[in-house]
């Protein structure tokens, strides 16, 4: 019996490794191309068939790309906006999601569908009126339009967290209500700690969304000292397309924080939590 299981496990693990490695080749390809292009001389960038291993390796592309524009400034701007957005989303979206998931207040469904509705109108037709609103607030060419809205919710994150909260058994809060706990205590002491993985997911997405956002900074920011990293990258593109190797070098640097953050946080996704003290 014991040997049987271990044979099944070896079989399972080998199969998993084969599938994962095949998948990793397919999914790793774009990034590998980026990396390889970032180390090529410009004349090799568009060679077909693709030259995967750059020869000679031009490490200098990185130095030149990063000194051509004030990337340090862009990094600081992006970091500030991204961190504030994450904090905003964590506060506003968790509260709203709990309200929508667990408190049967009047008009809840209408409000919830109104919230979902904000995702259903293409931004192409809402961006101009939105620009006018920010202009009247005096927020244009500041970072405010890029992070203040995060403190006022976000349909995607609220819907996501609501779904997680609704997977938790209600017995938890029924017991808590009998103990005389208020909704705020239940939210804080039970729902948040049990949804760590959901919160991590929100942090990852909020980070990516903010860090890689190109469209909104492009519309709302015009002074170069307020630029974010994606706007800085666009600079390489506009100049006749002759700087692909620099663009890729800068893109690799820009994507490293995303990769590190994801690598660091994915460790918390482990199979199965043991819900101790719960009905099993």
């Amino acid at each position: 019996m014991g040997r049987n299981i271990s044979f099944r496990d070896t079989y399972r693990i080998t199969l998993a490794y084969i599938l994962l490695t095949l998948g990793a080749i397919v999914f790793g390809l774009p990034f590998f191309w980026m990396l390889s292009t970032s180390l090529k001389p410009i004349e090799d960038v568009f060679l077909i068939p693709i030259k995967w291993i750059p020869n000679p390796i031009k490490w200098n592309n990185y130095v030149e790309a990063l000194t051509a524009v004030p990337f340090g400034r862009y990094f600081i701007n992006s970091t500030k906006i991204t961190l504030l957005s994450i904090i905003g989303h964590l506060i506003s979206c968790t509260l709203a999601a709990y309200g929508f998931a667990r408190i049967p207040f009047k008009g809840r469904d209408i409000l919830f569908f109104l919230l979902l509705g904000t995702m259903m109108l293409p931004s192409q037709v809402t961006i101009i009126p939105l620009f006018i609103i920010f202009k009247q607030l005096g927020w244009v060419n500041t970072h405010l339009p890029l992070y203040i809205p995060s403190f006022f919710g976000g349909a995607f994150y609220i819907f996501l967290l609501r779904q997680y909260f609704m997977t938790l058994p209600t017995e938890l809060e029924e017991a808590a209500i009998i103990d005389g706990c208020g909704y705020m205590r239940i939210f804080w002491d039970i729902y948040l700690p049990l949804s760590k993985n959901a919160l991590i997911t929100v942090v990852i997405f909020s980070f990516m969304g903010s860090w890689n956002d190109f469209f909104r900074p492009l519309i709302f920011i015009n002074s170069p000292d307020k630029f974010t990293v994606p706007l800085g990258l666009a600079g390489f593109r506009s100049e006749m397309g002759n700087y692909w190797h620099y663009l890729m070098a800068a893109s690799v640097v820009a994507v490293i924080p995303c990769i590190l953050l994801y690598f660091f946080f994915q460790r918390y996704f482990i199979e199965g939590i043991a819900l101790t003290g719960l009905k099993s």
Partner: peptide, 25 residues
């Protein structure tokens, strides 16, 4: 009371809809 508590929880995001979405919509 339950209504008021509910509105309290969703207040920020409802304000967000009114500030940033409803106008453009």
């Amino acid at each position: 009371r339950i209504n008021l508590i509910g509105y309290g929880f969703v207040l920020l995001s409802v304000l967000g809809i009114f500030f940033f979405n409803l106008g453009p919509m």
